[in-house]
């Protein structure tokens, strides 16, 4: 369903809402395109005229500085005009519906929406209900998907490990509430890694998680044994105030990534985190800033990946 919605009649990307349903070939095409944009970022003239005259609207119903900034930068480097709209503080708080907001922006002849929303499925809803010439990129919807984040993670893994076959990847932390984890799991499986593990207490794992194509672990040592990639997730502070976890201390003790625990992974394992980091809660500073950490590369790769996805989506006749 989602897959059908995301591709146009020629099988090209029209919307980018979820990793689900994309083929390995399409994901690889995105990674390859990102590679050329990534090389471009190191030269002095960083702009290409690919999307000149196009208007891209960043529709953020939920705050996010980092994701919005990289999308903005990506659009600017493709020479598009960017309209940032922070809706958490405007229309919908006045009772305007999601659809009305979209209709108003359509009337301003926007070519692409980059959407972040607190509810799962919001990006798909917009894609299904907006004018047919508009492309929608999901910048995170509820607990459902954050596909551009997952793609930049895949890009970073490929930079370091060259190929996906044979890799063992562990995702650690709040899988239950994480759109990042859901998209990562799908991307890793489509790209053909050997095994995806999730490490978390049961309170932070969705039911039937193994059906998503992962092996669940409750013990960090066992879960990290022999892994090539450790992907940490951000733990939202508000989870501490519910019945999900007893305390930050205990969480760190069990699931925080320390130098000591990292030793269970392969010696050449890389450590990733989508940011922003809670130092001393899910990850120790010496690991976050350490030799195996590729966290800042993820941030730089975010721009290249988003350029690649936006360019591909707009070329499909958007």
């Amino acid at each position: 369903m989602t897959a059908k919605l995301q591709l146009n009649s020629d099988g090209k990307i029209k919307h980018f809402l979820s990793i689900e349903g994309f083929s390995r070939a399409i994901l690889t095409e995105i990674l390859d395109a990102a590679e050329s944009y990534s090389e471009m970022a190191t030269i002095s003239s960083k702009k290409v005229p690919l999307l000149r005259g196009k208007t891209i609207s960043n529709l953020f119903f939920e705050n996010s500085t980092r994701t919005r900034t990289t999308f903005e930068l990506a659009a600017t480097r493709l020479s598009a005009d960017v309209l940032n709209i922070n809706i958490s503080t405007s229309a919908t708080s006045k009772g305007e519906s999601l659809l009305d907001t979209i209709r108003n922006l359509e009337a301003m002849h926007i070519d692409m929406f980059v959407v972040r929303h607190a509810l799962s499925g919001a990006a798909q809803f917009i894609a299904e209900n907006c004018a047919p010439n508009i492309s929608v990129i999901n910048a995170g919807d509820g607990r459902h998907a954050h596909p551009t984040q997952a793609m930049l993670d895949m890009f970073t893994i490929r930079q370091h490990k060259k190929k996906f076959a044979g890799l063992v990847v562990a995702i650690v932390g709040d899988i239950l509430h994480s759109r990042v984890a859901r998209s990562q799991i799908q991307a890793l499986n489509i790209l053909g890694v050997n095994e995806v593990r999730v490490i978390a207490p049961k309170t932070l794992l969705p039911v039937n998680v193994e059906k998503l194509g992962v092996v669940p672990y409750q013990d960090m040592q066992q879960g990290l044994e022999g892994v090539d990639v450790v992907m940490m997730l951000r733990l939202q502070r508000e989870r501490m105030n519910s019945a999900l976890l007893p305390s930050e201390n205990e969480y760190f003790k069990c699931f925080g990534l320390t130098q000591e625990k990292l030793k269970f992974a392969r010696p050449d394992a890389i450590v990733m985190h989508p940011g922003p980091i809670n130092r001393g809660i899910e990850i120790e500073s010496s690991v976050a800033d350490g030799e195996q950490s590729v966290i800042l590369q993820q941030v730089s790769n975010g721009v290249a990946i988003r350029m690649a996805i936006m360019a591909l989506a707009m070329q499909s006749g958007g």
Binding site: S120, R143, R179, N208, K211
Partner: peptide
């Protein structure tokens, strides 16, 4: 329903 589908699509579940 708190099951496979809600887990996959990130919908808050009702057990």
């Amino acid at each position: 329903h708190e099951g496979v589908v809600a887990s996959q699509y990130g919908l808050p579940g009702i057990p």
